[in-house]
Write a protein that binds this DNA or RNA. Structure first.
Length: 289
DNA sequence: CCACAGGACGGCT
DNA sequence: AGCCGTCCTGTG
C-alpha cells in the first residue's frame, strides 16, 4: 500500500511502514543532536523510542526509513509531524546557505539535521533537568523519572515507559523526585508539575507571550524556554543560547556582533524565521566538528 | 583530594 | 539594569 504525503511517500506492509527517498534526513544526527533524550540506539543501529504514547523502532537504510511497529494511522497522526516531514528543509537550507560561508560549512557537516516536534509537557520537565547539566546525566535522570513514575508499555519484547504525567510527579513528591538524582532541580520539577496542572492552557500562547509564560515556571530561564519552544515546533524562530552556541556565534560572527551585541536579537534578525533551525546546525557543528 | 562543566535563582549593587 | 555566589552530580 503506497501513500503520498507532502514532501514524502510511504509504503506499508504488515505493521512496517517505509518512508521512501527521504532528503535531508539523518536519523542518527537528528536523535543525537541534544534536542531529545529518550531514544535508545540498538546494536543493529536502529533506534527505539516513544512519543505521544506510541512506541516505535526506526532504522535508516540509505534514503529509506523503516518504521517497525507502526500502522498507517500512527504515521499519519504522530510520526509525520514528529519528524517534521511537513517542512521542506531543502528550501530552508538553500536560504541559510546563501547567507554566508559559515552556515554553508555548518550545514555541510550535518545536512540531515531536523528540528523535532516533541511533546510540550515532556520537554518542559526535560529542559529543567538539562539546566547546569550534561547530556549523559540528563538522559539518566529522565529515564529514572520515566521508569519510576511513567506508565509501562510492552513493545517488541521490552518494557518502555511513557513520560510521567504532571499528576504522577505531584503524587511522587519532591523527596522522591530528588531520589531520581536530579539534585536541586527536584524542587523545580515538583513546583512546575503543580503549576502546570493549574496552567495547562499556556501552550495555546505563541511567540514572546509564550516565552514570558514559560519563564514563570520555577527552573525555567530564557535558554530553557527557547528550547521548549523550538523543540516542540511551537516556534522555529526561538534561538536557544547555551555555552556552545555562544562560543561558536562569537567566533563566527565576531564582526557582525560588534554592531548588535545581543546574540539572541542578532540571530533572529539575521536568520529570520528559521533562526532555530540555524541554531541546531551551529550547535551540532560546534560540538562535533 | 580538587577543578571543572553545565543554567537558573536570588541577593547584591 | 548587570554581576556573581550558590545549587548537585559526574568526570578527569
Amino acid at each position: 500500500m503506497i501513500t503520498n504525503y507532502i514532501n514524502i511517500k510511504t509504503e506499508y506492509i504488515e505493521n512496517v511502514l517505509t518512508v521512501k527517498d527521504v532528503k535531508n534526513f539523518n536519523l542518527h544526527d537528528i536523535l543525537e543532536s541534544g534536542q531529545c533524550f529518550r531514544w535508545v540506539r540498538n546494536k543493529d543501529s536502529s533506534y527505539t523510542g516513544m512519543a505521544y504514547g506510541k512506541a516505535i523502532n526506526i532504522t535508516q537504510k540509505e534514503n529509506d526509513l523503516i518504521f517497525k511497529g507502526c500502522n498507517q494511522d500512527d504515521f499519519k497522526n504522530t510520526w509525520y509531524r514528529y519528524f517534521d516531514f511537513e517542512t521542506d528543509y531543502s528550501s530552508i537550507i538553500e536560504k541559510l546557505e546563501a547567507l554566508d560561508s559559515n552556515m554553508k560549512e555548518a550545514i555541510k557537516f550535518a545536512p540531515g539535521l531536523r528540528v523535532l516536534n516533541q511533546e510540550p509537557w515532556e520537554l518542559l520537565i526535560s529542559y529543567i533537568v538539562s539546566a547546569n547539566n550534561n547530556i549523559p546525566r540528563i538522559k539518566k535522570c529522565i529515564n529514572t523519572l520515566c521508569e519510576r513514575y511513567g506508565e509501562p508499555i510492552e513493545f517488541m519484547g521490552e518494557t518502555l515507559y511513557n513520560f510521567p504525567t504532571p499528576k504522577a510527579l505531584v503524587e511522587a513528591g519532591e523527596e522522591n523526585i530528588f531520589l531520581c538524582r536530579v539534585g536541586y532541580r527536584a524542587k523545580y520539577i515538583y513546583m512546575t508539575a503543580k503549576r502546570y496542572i493549574e496552567n495547562k492552557d499556556i501552550f495555546n500562547y505563541r511567540g514572546e507571550e509564550l516565552k514570558k509564560e514559560l519563564i514563570k515556571f520555577h527552573g525555567v530561564g530564557p535558554k530553557v524556554a527557547d528550547c521548549v519552544m523550538l523543540y516542540t515546533g511551537l516556534s522555529k524562530e526561538a534561538f536557544p543560547i547555551d555555552v556552545w552556541v555562544k562560543r561558536i556565534m562569537t567566533q563566527l560572527y565576531e564582526d557582525k556582533l560588534k554592531k548588535e551585541k545581543n546574540i539572541d536579537l542578532f540571530a533572529r534578525k539575521y536568520f529570520g524565521e528559521y533562526a532555530g533551525i540555524a541554531q541546531l546546525y551551529l550547535f551540532y557543528y560546534a560540538r562535533n566538528a
